[in-house]
Design a protein around this nucleic acid. Sequence first.
DNA 1: GCAAGGTC
Length: 625
Amino acid sequence: MARKILCVAEKPAIARAVATHMSGGSFQTHSVRGNQYVKNYEFEFNFGAPWGSCSVTMTSVIGHLTGLDFERQYRGWQSCPPGALFEAPVKEEVDEKKMPIAENIRNQARYSKALFIWTDCDREGEHIGTEVRTQAMSGNARIEVRRAKFSNTERAHVLRAAREPITLDEFQANAVAARIELDLRIGAAFTRLQTLQLQQVAEILKEKVISYGSCQFPTLGFVVDRYLRVQNFKPETFWGIKVMLQREGIKVNFLWRRVHLFDRAAVTMMLERCLSAKQAKVTKVNQKPKSKWRPLPLTTVDLQMMGSRYLRMDSQKVMKVAEALYTKGFISYPRTETDQFDKAIDLKKLVEKQYPDGRWGQYARELLDGKFRTPRSGRHNDQAHPPIHPVSWVNPSQLNSDEKKVYEFVARRFLACCSEDAKGQGTDIEIQYGEEMFHASGLIVLERNYLDVYVYDKWESSQNLPNFEKGERFEPTEANIFEGKTTAPGYLTEPELIGLMDANGIGTDATMAEHIAKIKEREYVVVNERGSGRSKVSELIPTKLGTALVEGYDNVVADLPNSISLSKPFLRKEMELRMLEICAGSKTRQEVVQQSLDMYREVFIHTQRRIAMLKTACRKYLVPE
DNA sequence: GCAAGGTC
């Protein structure tokens, strides 16, 4: 009998795609008792030396198999002081719902010579791989374990991954294990402490869970930070000089190089000097081609930001809709950090699939008639998923209105990536007037190219500039002083928040939207709709509770030399750096867990000692006088 | 009743 090899992917869709390539399209599908999504695919495959031709069962898990929790006697909120959770024993157990999946792996492993792990090639994937290995080995202790290294599900790439397996990266798996333990201990300890303490302070907190998490709190911190900047904003008056020339029936406005100053007397004096010079001199006339670059291939973070901005959906909604489109086979996997297309992907074939569309089908045809350009490459590659792109065309009548909007965006974005940049002719004119420099610029859009399909970008020709020659002199039609006031920044919008989280390493592409949803659910922030119609913006405003928590924690650590407030992203960032050290092999999991726990324990003890400050902040905002 | 991370 042929040797048997068990393959396990991170999710059903990958199992199916890999099985399709390895089997050349002919495999048997068996359902798995107890789970409707996971399937076992059986087929023959020649792995080459040393395995040779084998019968294969390809199956999957659905993300992590296990979860970490405290031992039973520590799960009650009154069972121990919250601080004890820094040391309380924890155990990893297969989730109740994942039991049938784990059992399937144990059963399949029993008759298998080897286990090939096909989880995503990222940190979480390595950890999920160890969970799969544990199950397989408990079914068959002698099973040999390998790992397939792949970054997309293109056929040749998959086949090579099957024939050139590597080993699991224990360092990366350990880094995730450390993250899991830290998130649990720190999250639970602070959540219980602040919930139990603050519930006593105000009537409206009585039944509330006041959660703390290393991601949700910095997310809240960003919202409060902006809110306070808006509240504390004091407008300042500034003055500037504007110069206008009327020529060939066109009014040309020249902008001051200094933009504006906050000293009226100084500006007045500068203007006087200009006026007494009478004539201005053209110091530069620059004609140069300008281009507006087509967008980069689409990542999750970008999809969420663009979704909030142009599709009027919050980030969680966009992701839900994108997942539905993915599950139905219309777009590629929507969780990716990759903004470069692999060379192996046949992009033209994907463009061709858009031919039937009434809105951009013609544009797609023109691309393949010679206008096609290889997409730009960004600098990110998660080695697991390609940029988000349409994989098949769908008739809009088959989609609901949100799905239509997201699919349209993904399709237009993809076609834009495969297009030429927009081209234009720019003119910059610089003049010297007295001692001061001014400039005017014009733009003529010559070729719209990608703009024709990517309706979300705007790039318009400006008013035509009249002719100027370098060295010529003219007397301006007008030269005036103008007055203005600095304006407050707006409240934080969701796309801005996602940008901040991304830049500060708070959450992952897949979880950022969840953290924002979490702080809404906890009533730390609310969404305020301002304006109407096209100019409508959704602003995030902290509630009194959200403001009180941030203020309270800031006060608690205000006079500590090294403690950084929990509302800031730095602690999480530090944890991230330590995880990278585990990945590099320079620190062990145990060292990192101990170090990080020590750091957070210090803040915890301090918070406990000064719990009155947290309570005072809550009372200040939440208890009526 | 707590976290964050996978995925459905």
